[in-house]
Amino acid sequence: MGQANVGKSAFFNRLTGAKVAESNYPGTTVDFTKGHMLFQGEYVDLIDVPGTFSLQPKDKAEEVAVKMLGEEKEALVICIIDASKVERGLYLALEIIEKGYPVIIALNMWDMAKSVNVKVDTEKLEQILGVPVVPTVATRGEGFKELVSRMGQAAPVTIEEIIRSVGNSSRTHH
């Protein structure tokens, strides 16, 4: 899951070999698509959904995404975040974490973030959130090996733990 135009469909095509339409503007995907990917030696379902800003849907396309998350209670969620606009994506990721889903975060368009000089400390982010964080470039397939190999580490975390660890790391800072 992720916001509009962060590369969800590009991820989906990479991971499943499907041919879902990808383009460089928001709103390309308006319905969900199911595909299969190889994960830890067996085929599992992967679902591509439309982009959404939050879990409070604003239009028909966002409704599809939120409804799908509600139906797939056993799902592992790949949260895709635009690496140069982390704050926005983090909001949605936190919402999903709060619902108790195991999450792995992909910081996509990592190359673009680098070119506009935005640096994200992935190790620290991982430490605070307690979920795997992987930089990726979906259109070129960079970071996908790591992403797939670390999907197994995705586990549910509670929001209290996150609040606690962000508190700790600020204290060590000052």
């Binding site: 704050e87 994200v120 400390d121 620290k124 996150i162 962000v166 790391s169 600020s170």
Partner: peptide, 10 residues
């Protein structure tokens, strides 16, 4: 919370 995390990592 997002702001606090961002301050630490970005």
């Amino acid at each position: 919370l997002v702001d606090r995390i961002a301050k630490e990592t970005i």
